[in-house]
């Protein structure tokens, strides 16, 4: 008997920094439930003691020399900012 997935979709949306209309919330809740039921395939196998794989071809401890190098100019870094002021990115006021 597959577990019925109870998803508090509005809570998940809040964590994901998304706002959902009621219509979207209903649709996603039902679709995600279906997908999660399918993902329950994973519970049919005994995975105790199996090492997790993060990358198929792992490369460990990649460090570069701690030396200065050229990067973006200020203009390049700001070139796509939606709103600029005094060579900085402008956002709504955070601290009153």
């Amino acid at each position: 008997m597959p577990e019925v997935h109870q998803i508090d979709i509005q809570h998940v949306a809040k964590l994901a920094r998304l706002t959902l209309s009621d219509e979207e919330a209903t649709r996603y809740e039902s679709q995600l439930g279906g997908i999660l039921n399918y993902i329950d395939t994973l519970t049919r196998y005994d995975l105790d003691g199996v090492e997790p794989t993060a990358h198929a071809i792992p490369v460990y401890d990649v460090l570069r020399a701690d030396e200065p190098r050229t990067g973006f100019t200020q203009e390049q870094a700001l070139s796509n900012a939606p709103k600029r002021h005094a060579d900085q990115i402008q956002i709504p006021k955070v601290i009153e």
Binding site: L42, L47, T53, A54, A56
Partner: peptide
């Protein structure tokens, strides 16, 4: 339940 389990399944597939 999901992420770690899937990473383990990935090991079996590999």
């Amino acid at each position: 339940a999901y992420y770690i389990r899937a990473q383990k399944a990935r090991t079996l597939i590999r």
